[in-house]
């Protein structure tokens, strides 16, 4: 009872009576805390001058290697999910989230075999963003296409629209998540180029890092808009292509030697 009558008073008295406490607790402590916890964090948001992307050299992508997939699953807590009890294995394979996948191709005419990782292509004109009724599917200022789960209603129209099957729907309750990748039942999700890592000052994605650690260096991450970036240099020196370039979506993920 007393709580309720006290509250408005507290708000008013806070300026006078609790100044000392407030000075100590509300100013100093969080200041210290934020400066420690938020080291390197971007306060001004995604940089509109940048456009993040990937270049994948399929010649370097090794057959049978799934380091990028494993790294992605660990990074975003996808591996914390388990097959729901009673669900058959085949259906689980079709229902579990896959932000990145390995694809092996063979040319019909020449027989040449290609391996490549496929993920959200971070289009400049993303069909998933066009069709989303609530605007939950959106493109960040720095070109990253992602889902705002707070407004996603789970209609799956974006999955219908995506030419790359890059998106996954969460078919079950999610028990465990990492702090940096909140995910739950009934929403759609996909590769976000490790957006939070970039926001905290990292300069590489989990998949590219894992690929490099394996010594393959098939995935190159960088800023497409920065002519001096390793990515832009590589793109300007070798022929590359977009998957489904016919749709003119101007993808942020490019491939060489497909």
């Amino acid at each position: 009872m007393s709580n309720q009558t006290e509250q408005p008073d507290l708000e008013r008295r806070g300026f006078i009576g609790k100044t000392v406490l407030a000075a100590g607790a509300a100013v100093v402590a969080p200041g210290v805390l934020v400066s420690v916890a938020g080291a390197g964090a971007k306060t001004d948001g995604a940089d509109p001058g940048k456009r993040y992307g990937l270049l994948i050299d399929t010649n370097k992508c090794a057959e049978g290697c799934t380091a990028c997939v494993t790294a992605c699953n660990e990074e975003h807590g996808i591996d914390l999910m388990q097959k729901p009890e009673g669900l058959d294995e085949a259906q689980w394979q079709q229902q579990k989230p896959q932000w990145i996948r390995k694809v092996k191709l063979q040319d019909n005419l020449t027989g040449r075999v290609t391996n490549l990782p496929l993920m959200c292509q971070h289009c400049e004109f993303p069909p998933c963003v066009d069709v989303c009724p609530t605007g939950a599917s959106f493109k960040r200022a720095d070109g990253i296409v992602m889902v705002d789960r707070h407004t996603c209603i789970g209609c799956r129209y974006c999955m219908m629209a995506c030419p790359y099957k890059a998106r996954s729907f969460i078919h079950q309750e999610v028990e465990h998540q990492t702090v940096s990748a909140p995910r739950g039942k009934g929403c759609v999700e996909s590769c976000n180029l490790c957006a939070y890592r970039l926001d905290y000052g990292a300069d590489n994605t989990a998949c590219a890092e894992a690929c490099a650690a394996q010594g393959h260096n098939a995935i190159l991450f960088g800023d497409l808009n920065d002519p001096n970036s390793e990515l832009a240099q590589a793109l300007s020196s070798a022929a590359s292509r977009q998957i489904r370039g016919d749709l003119e979506l101007n993808t942020g993920v490019r491939y060489t030697n497909v």
């Binding site: 969080p30 805390l33 934020v34 916890a37 938020g38 964090a41 971007k42 306060t43 001004d44 948001g45 995604a46 959106f138 960040r140 200022a141 720095d142 990253i144 992602m146 705002d148 789960r149 707070h150 702090v179 957006a195 939070y196 970039l198 926001d199 905290y200």
Partner: peptide
């Protein structure tokens, strides 16, 4: 701020 703008400067964090 975090999701749509990519701004990570806020002191109010659910994780905290």
């Amino acid at each position: 701020d975090v999701v749509r703008r990519g701004g990570r400067g806020s002191q109010y964090k659910l994780a905290e």
